[in-house]
Simulated assay, not measured.
Amino acid sequence: MQGSQFSLKGKTILITGATSGIGKECARIFAELGANVVLSGRSEEKLKAVANELCLGNRPLICADLSDENSLATLACETPPLDGFAACAGIHYSSLLKFSDENEIEKIISLNCTAQIKLTRHLLRNKKFNKGASLVFMSSTSAFLPQPAISAYSASKAAMIAFTKALSAEIAPRKCRANAICPALVKTPMTESFLNQNPELAKIDEAKYPLGYGKPEYVANAAAFLLSDASIWITGTSLTVDGGLTGSK
């Protein structure tokens, strides 16, 4: 595998949101495929725990709060030159818009969208992307298949699709690529607490998925493909990874 175009051997890849869920699984799979992973998250303790669990040795661990402008700048400065970037950090909550307060709306738009744009800007200004680098951003099927009580979340993820398309045109002269992944519901610590609180509702909802709910590795595998040379002619697009949910609509 490591000798193929699907290998990540020798590639240095930054992963944000690397302490849990999809980000953590990206760290595991990318490392298995030979990448030099750079892990970032808010908690140094959790970053060290992930590095130990995955036997990553002395790989770079960079603490960063993506809601803080200075922290974004520091992360971009401390990051080594990159061949890939997987932006996995994000949050989700459910609330009817009329019951959402201003802080909730601003937080979800900021972390899911604005912070990703700002961090990418900092990385570009610091010339951290090597020629031919690949950037992968996490959007969601909620961007084009919205449901009640997730209007702010849907808006933040739809914005990431538009951002990715525009960015891909900007960075194409250096043969760099930008793509988004649109997962449907994936069982992560962030979603399982909700599913466990509403088991009957979850059972009804999962029945809408021809292949069932997703696992973090399904999305991480898609990200690995987009970061590899096997996808070298793919840019400015969004890959739906949803167990057949939208195909059945």
Score class of each variant (00 low, 15 high):
Tyr93Ile: 00
Cys55Asp: 09
Ser71Met: 10
Pro81Cys: 06
Asn52His: 03
Met190Thr: 10
Glu206Ala: 13
Glu32Leu: 14
Leu8Asn: 04
Val37Cys: 07
Ala18Asp: 07
Cys63Leu: 01
Pro81Phe: 02
Asn103Tyr: 09
Glu106Tyr: 08
Arg59Ile: 09
Leu226Met: 10
Ser248Tyr: 02
Glu217Asp: 14
Leu8Trp: 11
Ile234Trp: 11
Glu200Met: 13
Arg177Ile: 03
Ala64Gly: 00
Gln5Asp: 11
Ala27Tyr: 04
Gly214His: 01
Thr19Trp: 03
Ser20Leu: 09
Asn103Glu: 13
His92Pro: 00
Ile150Glu: 15
Ile62Lys: 08
Ala35Gly: 12
Gly17Ala: 12
Glu102Ile: 01
Lys46Val: 08
Lys249Thr: 08
Lys175Arg: 15
Ile150Arg: 13
Leu211Met: 14
Lys131Ala: 11
Met190Ile: 14
Leu96Phe: 12
Tyr213Val: 11
Ala49Asn: 10
Cys88Tyr: 08
Leu82Thr: 05
Leu72Phe: 12
Asn198Arg: 11
Arg28Val: 04
Ile204Tyr: 02
Ile91Trp: 07
Pro216Met: 02
Gly17Arg: 02
Cys26Ala: 14
Ser4Cys: 08
Val50Glu: 10
Leu124Pro: 04
Glu206Gly: 10
Pro146Trp: 07
Leu123Asn: 09
Gly34Trp: 10
Ser67Pro: 05
Leu239Lys: 00
Ser231Gln: 05
Pro80Ser: 05
Gly132Pro: 13
Arg125Ser: 04
Met190Gly: 01
Asn52Glu: 14
Phe30Tyr: 12
Val219Cys: 09
Ser71Trp: 14
Glu102Lys: 12
Ala180Leu: 02
Ala222Asp: 07
